Simulated scan of single mutants.
Amino acid sequence: MNNTQTPFPAIDSLLMLEGPEGPLEVHVEWPDADQTAIAATAIVCHPLPTGGGTKDNKVVTTAAKAFRALGMPSVRFNFRGTGKSAGAFDNGIGEVADLMAVVEWVRATRPNTTLWLAGFSFGSYVSLSSIGLSRPDYLVSIAPPAGRWDFDALVRPGMPWLVVQGEADELVDANVTKQWFDQLQAPQARYVSMPETSHFFHGKLIDLREAILAWAADVRRA
């Protein structure tokens, strides 16, 4: 598996990278031309494939738009067995390997940029599971499914970290997520609880975007 010969595209592009089980479908998007660029790259991981999650999920695309508003390109990709990506669902284990293929490509092709890593629901579990390997500079976890996946073995994030959780989440118990977050006592973490907000942030996507932008502004000033 060698993606170092695949350049990071200079314009919005759909491309296929080599993953552990074959091709991975990847979507790169750049900020608007009038946006001030920063030396950063964002990767966003999508929710559970067996529940219909893809790189085009509205929460995923909202997070990607927020990163582009900050001046960095966003990278969304389909985990194995989703869309045009080869392979089959692997309960988070193989999906970490998929993510690492994308991370390694970004690091090889954009070596002088910071890495912002985000995930929604199952995607947040995968991104959190990867941090010992992916070593992101910044981390965003949206509706992390504590209580539904094994979060006990996850490494405590040591980088600036944002968790956004809806209080009316019908799939993830917000109380369990908050308890898990508090127990970690992560040194550079922020927890944002959004009232009257469902798992898929229906009617709250702008609020989600603003939460990411506000946090990013603070950590970049720090």
Rank of each mutant, 00 (worst) to 15 (best):
L24C: 04
D137S: 11
A10F: 06
A118H: 00
W30R: 01
V140N: 00
E18F: 03
P187M: 07
F200L: 07
R221T: 09
Q5A: 07
L133P: 08
H46W: 03
S85A: 12
V96R: 02
L128M: 13
P136Y: 02
P23M: 08
P195Q: 04
T61C: 14
K204F: 04
F79G: 04
Q179D: 15
V103P: 03
T197E: 01
Q185G: 13
T113G: 02
F77I: 14
A97F: 09
G132Y: 13
L213I: 09
A186G: 12
E21H: 10
A214T: 10
F201L: 06
P111D: 04
G158Q: 11
P31G: 06
Q183M: 15
P20R: 03
V44I: 06
M194N: 02
K55S: 07
G87A: 09
V155Q: 08
P73I: 14
I38R: 13
A33G: 00
R110Y: 04
W180I: 12
E95Q: 02
F79M: 12
N112R: 06
D12R: 04
H202L: 14
N3A: 03
A10Q: 12
D32C: 04
P9L: 04
F122G: 03
H46G: 05
W215A: 03
V140M: 09
Q185L: 08
N78C: 15
S74Y: 00
E21Q: 07
Q183N: 11
D173I: 13
D169K: 15
F181I: 15
C45G: 05
